[in-house]
Amino acid sequence: MPKEQGRKLVAQNKKARHDYHIDDTYEAGLVLTGTEVKSLRQGRASLVDGFVDIEHGEAWLHAVHIPEYSQGTWTNHSARRKRKLLLHRTEITKIEREVSTKGVTVIPLSLYFNDGRAKVEIALARGKKAWDKRQSIAERTANREKEQAVGRYLKGLRD
């Protein structure tokens, strides 16, 4: 059987970019059991409540929901167990240093397979205030209206 090629998205935390300012992103490998991988290959996971914690020099992914594999037996995994992240030592120390500052947290942005290996994209993030969220929505709306106006102009339509 040929090796899997490319990137296959499993889950994405769409609300993260709305609720947080993203400072820096990292790609990390995951230590998974067999039934977790099979469940992910079916495209089943949720990153909504997930966060990353550094414990004793190791990065751990908490509260990410990977449901039990439907054809699994007694060897099935727990759906919300903590999972170890595979990062370089320098990345872990940099993340740990950033998290020690006030208001910075580490959240998962997406979970995917890259050339057959499970990866998670994590980000250093700062929480947005309510007015920041309204401002980003207003900017997005203004950009959309601007693009629509340019498109109408190029097609020869006038308002």
Results as ranks from 00 to 15, higher is better:
residue 28 A to S: 08
residue 68 E to T: 14
residue 110 S to R: 14
residue 149 A to F: 14
residue 68 E to G: 15
residue 34 G to S: 03
residue 110 S to L: 08
residue 108 P to L: 06
residue 146 K to V: 05
residue 82 K to M: 02
residue 64 V to L: 02
residue 45 A to N: 05
residue 112 Y to L: 10
residue 130 A to D: 12
residue 34 G to L: 07
residue 157 L to I: 03
residue 43 G to V: 06
residue 139 E to A: 15
residue 98 E to H: 05
residue 115 D to N: 10
residue 121 E to T: 07
residue 74 W to N: 10
residue 135 Q to L: 08
residue 79 A to C: 08
residue 121 E to D: 10
residue 64 V to N: 01
residue 153 Y to G: 14
residue 140 R to T: 05
residue 60 W to C: 01
residue 132 D to S: 04
residue 29 G to A: 00
residue 127 G to D: 12
residue 52 V to T: 05
residue 143 N to W: 13
residue 75 T to P: 02
residue 74 W to S: 09
residue 129 K to C: 09
residue 38 K to V: 04
residue 126 R to K: 01
residue 69 Y to K: 03
residue 158 R to Y: 08
residue 96 E to Y: 03
residue 111 L to V: 13
residue 137 I to Y: 14
residue 102 K to Q: 09
residue 41 R to D: 01
residue 158 R to A: 13
residue 30 L to G: 02
residue 65 H to L: 12
residue 119 K to N: 11
residue 29 G to Q: 06
residue 52 V to S: 01
residue 112 Y to S: 14
residue 136 S to C: 14
residue 89 R to T: 01
residue 151 G to N: 12
residue 48 V to I: 07
residue 151 G to I: 04
residue 143 N to I: 12
residue 89 R to L: 05
residue 98 E to F: 02
residue 145 E to M: 15
residue 133 K to Y: 14
residue 51 F to G: 06
residue 106 V to W: 01
residue 90 T to R: 00
residue 49 D to P: 00
residue 112 Y to D: 15
residue 101 T to A: 06
residue 124 L to D: 00
residue 62 H to G: 05
residue 31 V to K: 14
residue 73 T to P: 04
residue 108 P to K: 09
residue 117 R to A: 13
residue 70 S to G: 07
residue 44 R to V: 09
residue 98 E to L: 11
residue 76 N to I: 11
residue 34 G to Q: 04
residue 95 I to S: 00
residue 84 K to R: 10
residue 45 A to L: 04
residue 64 V to M: 07
residue 49 D to Y: 09
residue 96 E to M: 00
residue 142 A to W: 10
residue 139 E to P: 11
residue 102 K to I: 07
residue 123 A to M: 07
residue 67 P to V: 12
residue 75 T to G: 12
residue 117 R to N: 10
residue 119 K to F: 03
residue 85 L to D: 13
residue 117 R to Y: 09
residue 46 S to M: 07
residue 104 V to C: 03
residue 39 S to D: 02
residue 26 Y to W: 03
residue 105 T to W: 00
residue 51 F to P: 01
residue 50 G to R: 05
residue 127 G to K: 09
residue 156 G to S: 11
residue 39 S to W: 01
residue 91 E to V: 03
residue 42 Q to T: 11
residue 49 D to S: 09
residue 54 I to Q: 02
residue 156 G to Q: 06
residue 80 R to C: 03
residue 126 R to P: 10
residue 148 Q to A: 13
residue 63 A to G: 04
residue 104 V to K: 05
residue 91 E to S: 03
residue 120 V to P: 13
residue 149 A to Q: 15
residue 108 P to A: 12
residue 144 R to W: 15
residue 47 L to W: 01
residue 78 S to N: 08
residue 47 L to C: 07
residue 106 V to M: 01
residue 86 L to G: 08
residue 67 P to R: 04
residue 55 E to K: 00
residue 77 H to A: 00
residue 41 R to Y: 01
residue 110 S to W: 02
residue 89 R to N: 08
residue 91 E to K: 00
residue 97 R to K: 12
residue 57 G to T: 06
residue 71 Q to I: 05
residue 48 V to P: 05
residue 97 R to S: 04
residue 100 S to E: 09
residue 52 V to P: 00
residue 153 Y to K: 14
residue 110 S to V: 05
residue 133 K to E: 15
residue 152 R to Y: 15
residue 117 R to E: 11
residue 135 Q to K: 15
residue 69 Y to F: 13
residue 26 Y to D: 13
residue 119 K to T: 11
residue 81 R to K: 13
residue 81 R to F: 03
residue 126 R to Q: 11
residue 116 G to L: 09
residue 96 E to F: 01
residue 155 K to V: 03
residue 113 F to T: 08
residue 115 D to C: 14
residue 79 A to N: 15
